[in-house]
Structure formats: structure tokens, C-alpha cells
């Protein structure tokens, strides 16, 4: 098991290095000189040179890359061109919105999807299954930002149950914060829940067709006992894969949803970075998002090994 984790850790590190190289190349090498790019064509050479100094963009490319990576490791994400403040501070503020939103959505989607998928598989072909499959068929076709707009239309503009957007900050208390994140989280979670429920159902149906389920039934387990004691854990293996992928979808989705609800999260920060040509912000935030996805995938792989002994100690 230790060996397995160490191996995965190694590949985690490698992925992070390659990802950082790709991002650095796209942001700092392809556009030519980032300082010129940020200031536009009308800037004087002196102004560009001054900016370069401020942003730490002097020196050769390899040196700049190493400088950036070393900074990342030390928690220094560079200096924002527009705000002239450390990016790390900006990110820290925004993460307080984006992370709870993603987690909220992930919890909602899992809590809805797994029971629905199990129910549909156990009642295969009957009314509950047909209903769940029909609803999820729609669920995966609905763009989350449009769903978000419909939610706002109904629950904020018509019924006035929940706020239409904005975020009061956690200082205002837990409840107002959660209220503000509820519609965004639902908008993010439901389309993902539809996918997850379908995966759970088909994984469970596949597992129920396996020989060892018949063996369990021959021992005297009822169909329900066989599902609970033998099928669910095996079916979780493909479900985990999707759950890992969903994190990256939710993260990306959150970027858009934050725009619908005017939430001051990482997504808004990125868009501001793009419109203001603030490459340092874009580069660091993208790296952060990608790192989050890679770390989650690593966690998923370790979780696999906890579920599946064949990975833990191969024969």
C-alpha cells in the first residue's frame, strides 16, 4: 500500500511539473513579451521596462520559470498588474467563495445521485427507474448556467425565497453565506447529479450481472442483501472515476456560475484578469485550478486502492 501511494505521489509530482510548464509556455512564451502584451502597443519602452521589474519578469525564460515555481511553492503567486497587490492575497479572498461553492455542489450532487442511481438499478425497468432515467436524460441536457437563470427567475425574482446574486461574505454569518450559495450550488449540482446517477445505475446493473452476485444469492442472500453487501462496493469503482472527473467539471462550472450570480470567486478573478490582460493573475489562478484537479485525481486513485484489494497488493 505504501509503495502504491509513493508511486502515485511520484506521478502526481510529475503531472504538476508538466502542467506548470504548459501553462508557463502558453502564457509567457507564446505571446512574446508578457509586459508588452499587458501594457498594449502604446506603452513607452521605459514604462514596459518598469512594469517588468515590478512583476519580476526580468531574466531568461528558464530563470523566470524557476522563479515562478519557487514562488508558487513558497505561496508567492506573483503581483497583480491591475491591482498592484500580491495575487496570493486576492486568491485567498476568492477561494473562500469558490471552494465552499464547489464542495456544497459536490455534496448535493452525490447525496442526490447515488441513492437515485441505486434505486433505479434495483427497480430496473419499473416506474421508479423509468422516471429517474427520464429526469436525468433532461438533467444532462440542461446547461448549468441556463438552469441557474431559471432558478433565479423562479426562486429569486418571483418567489423571493433566496437572493438573486451577490455574496455577503462569511463575516455576515454562516446562514446568509449559505443562502447566497444555495442557488448557485443547486444549479451546479443538478446537471452533474444526473450524470452521476446514470453512472451509478449502469455500474450497479453491470455488477448485478456478475457471477459473484449469483454465488451470493446461492448462499441465501436476498436480492436486496446481495445489492447492499456485494454489489454497491464493486459498483463504486467506476463511480469514483466519474466523481473525480466531476470535481473538474464543477470547478469549471463554478467559473461560469459565479458570473451568473455575481459571486466574487476565482472565476470572476480569472475573467477580470483576462479583460484587463493581467497575465500574472491568469497564470497563477489557472495553475491553482489545475493543481486542485490533479490532487483530487490522486486522492481518487488512492481511494480506488482502499476499495479494491487487487490494487493494494497485486498477486
Amino acid at each position: 500500500m505504501l509503495r502504491f501511494v509513493l508511486l502515485r505521489l511520484g506521478s502526481l509530482g510529475l503531472s504538476l511539473v508538466v502542467a506548470s510548464l504548459v501553462i508557463f509556455t502558453v502564457v509567457q512564451v507564446i505571446p512574446g513579451d508578457p509586459a508588452t502584451f499587458m501594457m498594449g502597443l502604446n506603452a513607452t519602452p521605459e514604462a514596459v521596462e518598469a512594469l517588468r521589474k515590478v512583476l519580476g519578469l526580468t531574466g531568461s525564460l528558464p530563470w523566470r520559470y524557476l522563479h515562478w515555481v519557487a514562488g508558487l511553492l513558497a505561496g508567492d503567486l506573483g503581483t497583480s498588474y491591475t491591482y498592484r497587490v500580491p495575487v496570493a492575497g486576492l486568491v485567498l479572498e476568492r477561494v473562500q467563495v469558490s471552494l465552499p461553492l464547489t464542495a456544497y455542489a459536490l455534496v448535493l450532487s452525490t447525496a442526490l445521485a447515488l441513492p437515485a442511481g441505486v434505486l433505479a438499478a434495483a427497480r430496473r425497468g419499473r416506474a421508479a427507474d423509468v422516471t429517474i432515467m427520464g429526469v436525468t436524460q433532461f438533467g444532462i441536457a440542461v446547461p448549468n448556467f441556463w438552469f441557474a437563470m431559471l432558478l433565479v427567475l423562479l426562486f429569486a425574482l418571483r418567489l423571493h425565497w433566496l437572493p438573486a446574486g451577490g455574496f455577503p461574505g462569511w463575516k455576515a454569518g454562516l446562514w446568509p453565506g449559505l443562502r447566497a450559495l444555495t442557488l448557485p450550488a443547486v444549479a451546479l449540482a443538478l446537471p452533474q447529479a444526473a450524470i452521476l446517477a446514470r453512472v451509478m445505475r449502469s455500474a450497479l446493473i453491470d455488477t448485478l450481472g456478475q457471477d459473484f452476485i449469483r454465488t451470493a444469492r446461492a448462499k441465501g442472500l436476498s436480492q436486496g442483501q446481495a445489492v447492499r453487501r456485494h454489489a454497491v462496493r464493486n459498483a463504486l469503482i467506476p463511480v469514483l472515476t466519474i466523481l473525480g472527473l466531476q470535481f473538474s467539471f464543477l470547478l469549471a462550472g463554478a467559473i461560469i456560475i459565479e458570473n451568473v450570480f455575481y459571486l466574487p470567486g476565482l472565476g470572476r478573478l480569472i475573467f477580470q484578469g483576462i479583460t484587463q490582460r493581467d497575465l500574472i493573475v491568469v497564470q497563477s489562478v489557472v495553475m491553482l485550478l489545475v493543481a486542485a484537479v490533479i490532487v483530487v485525481n490522486f486522492t481518487v486513485e488512492v481511494a480506488y486502492a482502499l476499495i479494491d484489494p487487487r490494487l493494494r497488493h497485486p498477486a
Partner: peptide
């Protein structure tokens, strides 16, 4: 099943729960 009647099947490689 299991108490009065026991049963074994052809394919031992897949007849046991792997986890």
C-alpha cells in the same frame, strides 16, 4: 438456499467477490 441447498458454479475466477 445456502442452508438446505448449496450450489457451486463453473467459473471460479469470477464466482467470488473481488473486494
Amino acid at each position: 438456499r445456502g442452508r438446505e441447498i448449496g450450489m457451486i458454479f463453473q467459473e471460479p475466477m469470477t464466482a467470488l467477490n473481488p473486494v
